[in-house]
Amino acid sequence: MFENTLDSYAHSNNLKNVNINFKVLFAFLTMLVSLISTSPVIPLLITFLMSFLIIFKAKIPWKFYLKFLTIPFFFGFLTFIFMAFFFGTGAPLFEPGIFNLAVTEDGFNLGFLVFSRIMGGFSCLAFLALTTPMNEMFSIFENLKMPKIVIEIAMLMYRYIFLFLEEAENMYYSQKTRMGYGSIKNTFKSLGLLASNLFIRTWLKGEQSYIAMESRCYDGSIKSFKAHEKISVKNITILLFFESFLLLGIYLTWGFKII
């Protein structure tokens, strides 16, 4: 049922066994590098490199990944159009002749920069989401000394989310087979019923699971297995070289504009 979510790929990709700290550090540093860039060159390069890693190294089906990439692309492209038209003060480049609209040079450049940053950042996020299972992320949070209570609630929440999505889906389809979404009025009624019943059911599940946990000696904390792996020297070197290469690229292309 979850064949199309990011979560299932996170558990079954070719980079699953790569050191978790390394993956997170790699994705996060690259994301930051993409963010500080003032030219679209490096973010776009990052997009290609990350997509390459995701498709050829992590072996995520390219069809799925490209479909997934249409989300930021669509959004980024809208942003680009919006900024090109409305966020410029300089000389107009192109006037379509309606409503006094005009694409300006600085608007175009800004829009393209934001577009490339969205694509760059998003591909790093995709790398993280598609190669790193959530339960391993929790061990990272623990290492970052996040408050224990937050991690515990997050862990429980992660478990419940999938239970509830399944429950919501069941309710949704049984409503649908009974013409629950036939008209706008019915749609709102059905959505309201679905959400309120979901709340009640989730609440019952929460109570039951507390009883179940308490009967198994739950004392308010969940013990989890923590793997304390160190990143190998070789990987650290690769990482440092890669990031400094990108930083050098940022320095060289500083302020570079398309037009």
Partner: peptide, 14 residues
């Protein structure tokens, strides 16, 4: 604690 967690999950699903 579990109740807070289900509430969070409910917000997510909603």
């Amino acid at each position: 604690k579990p109740l807070l967690a289900v509430s969070g999950a409910f917000i997510f699903v909603l």
